[in-house]
Design a protein around this nucleic acid. Structure first.
Lengths: 346, 346
DNA sequence: CTGTTAGCGCTTTCAC
DNA sequence: GTGAAAGCGCTAACAG
């Protein structure tokens, strides 16, 4: 098992000092004889030298690693965002380290500590479903760690936050259903305590209001995030002999659950009932009828996250606290298509 | 910005030495006055001390971090496996660091180096589609790093490998179609150069042989891994006026593409044509008709990976080089169900 | 331009 | 039972 080559070894080999070797190896020093530098570089190459980032981290408190903490990555949304974040950060010379909290606040806290202790240069976080206590994150931020939140955020955290413009696109989504002629629209919400659920509910209401469509709180139903939960909610509604004119689900999976139940009972989509999803996934084009949904552009989200994080790293704490809204696309498909009008909105 | 508390700070506070503090903090030392230990522990707690893993790593060359490198995580398979790996390793006191290679050999190599340099205690790897040169991985292994490969493996790598029993389950899958009465079965293969593709092809052939069903190489068609590629392949076949009795696709997405095209042209599944997938995904229960597929148990795969890795870490290099086969489940659904017989196989 | 030295935070001999 | 000192690999003053 060959020992790892260190600058000391190179120094010995070349009968010079470690500091000379170190300087020769580091681009930024110019007070060094070009010849010496070449000799060192050559020796380093030949001896198979590779710098030890651990030692460097210990010395500089800087790692060129960025930590990413997400609540889960079984769904496609987070992997896609991470993928795009990684793509961009690698270009900037950073390495991305991903940890999943598995929707557990406790795990999230551990991940946070691990990454902080490992001296990542910045942190990109999407909170778990459970996260209510945000003291620790704020503490990290106060200690000077650049942090950017996205998607699942908490307004009280003192960092920039990148979120989808849920209000606006929920409004658009609802408006689309209205313009297609649907009435008596039900909104299947994600769990209420998520900030995004509330925004989507408001967008839903706002569109109804705009078109002066009467509305009762009964039209909003709290569901979960899975296909099963969507199907369950639809079932409960139909069992009460309530047949919606349309269902606007705050998540594609919930929408798919609803479609399954509607189909099972023989309802015709989109003719009798319209269905709309949100946060488009690959599933939208597989379910029949294909699901109309709002697409969240993971590339744009990643772009903004990376931009804000690099700003924060370079400006050294002058992070712009606040929300940065990202817009999406309404992809109209069969599940809501009554008339050929109402063009794709971007 | 409060400075990070170190053992030095504690020592100063308590008018003692760093070595005493270090020993008090480390369970394994017994030559220390219990009282002193308590005082140290108390001070550490009060001062908010947290050990610096970087320093520890530098000192011990051990990190309690495990690196995981996967080719992608946009599909559900890898995220699920990672999720399960993480779940198990956390219990053992390890932290899991995930990196994606994005199907690029170059990125894979970088990831490999980053993780090695960061002194992870072990590496779990699934190769990219491109990876042909495995010298570097073997070098790492020879340097003593515990490595376990899974799913996308290369037989020449000197490490344990956890793979799905592609041959056997491909055989079963094909057999199921045969027993359902289908003949003239076409196999839509994944890219040929993947080891698993070859295994699945062999399994396919083996089942045909068992039932003495005539076979020509024409019945095996190389496709890709996407829905589009599956649809494209189906289209090309039908355009040549070849109508299969059944299609056994080596991936669910390919199978779904095939179904789409068949439906578009009005063929009835499963009555006219049977369809079978592989590596079941959530999509199987969304496409209509629901897709019969072979499920790969990501939990069992993760179990085996973790078991082998821990073995390798503890036994210190006495790793069992070789392939460990994991079995699956054949989930029969509508796309291949002609008769009610042929029970679920496990 | 080069070398000596101290130090990042921690563990681990080895004296006392 | 405790502490002084060396060292993990590297960088950064500072002298020369």
């Amino acid at each position: 098992m060959e020992k790892h080559v260190t600058i000391k070894d190179i120094a010995k080999e070349l009968n010079t000092s470690v500091s000379t070797v170190s300087k020769a190896l580091n681009e930024k020093y110019f007070d060094i004889n070009p010849e010496t530098r070449q000799r060192v570089l050559k020796a380093a190459r030949e001896m198979g030298y590779r710098p030890n980032p651990i030692a460097r981290k210990l010395q500089q408190g800087r790692s060129y690693n960025i930590g990413v903490i997400v609540p889960e990555f079984l769904d496609t949304f987070f992997p896609e965002v991470i993928f795009n974040i990684q793509k961009r950060l690698i270009k900037e010379g950073y390495q991305v380290v991903v940890m999943s909290s598995d929707e557990s606040f406790e795990t999230e806290l551990e991940n946070l500590k691990t990454l902080e202790d490992n001296m990542v240069d910045g942190l990109i976080i999407s909170l778990t479903r459970e996260t209510k206590n945000i003291d620790y994150i704020n503490k990290i931020i106060d200690r000077g760690m650049p942090v950017v939140l996205f998607n699942r955020v908490n307004p009280s955290i003192r960092s920039p936050k990148v979120i989808f413009d849920d209000f606006k696109w929920s409004h658009f989504a609802t408006e689309h259903l209205i313009l297609q002629g649907y009435r008596n629209i039900y909104h299947f919400s994600l769990p209420y305590h998520l900030a995004m659920s509330q925004k989507r509910i408001q967008g839903f209401k706002s569109a109804l209001k705009k078109y002066r469509i009467p509305f009762t709180e009964e039209h909003i139903i709290e569901t979960g995030i899975s296909i099963e939960e969507g199907q369950e909610a639809m079932k409960r509604l139909l069992d009460r002999d309530i047949v919606p004119g349309a269902v606007f689900a705050a998540g594609d999976k919930v929408a798919i659950g609803a479609i399954k139940e509607l189909k099972r009972r023989g309802y015709k989509i989109p003719d009798q009932i319209g269905v709309m999803g949100f946060t488009e996934s690959a599933l939208a084009e597989i379910i029949e009828p294909n699901l109309t949904s709002v697409n969240q552009p993971t590339d744009k989200i990643a772009d903004k996250i990376v931009e804000l994080l690099l700003d924060s790293i370079n400006d050294n704490g002058k992070a712009k606290i606040g929300e940065f809204l990202i817009g999406g696309t309404l992809n109209v498909r069969e599940s809501s298509r009554v008339m050929a009008s109402d063009p794709k909105r971007t």
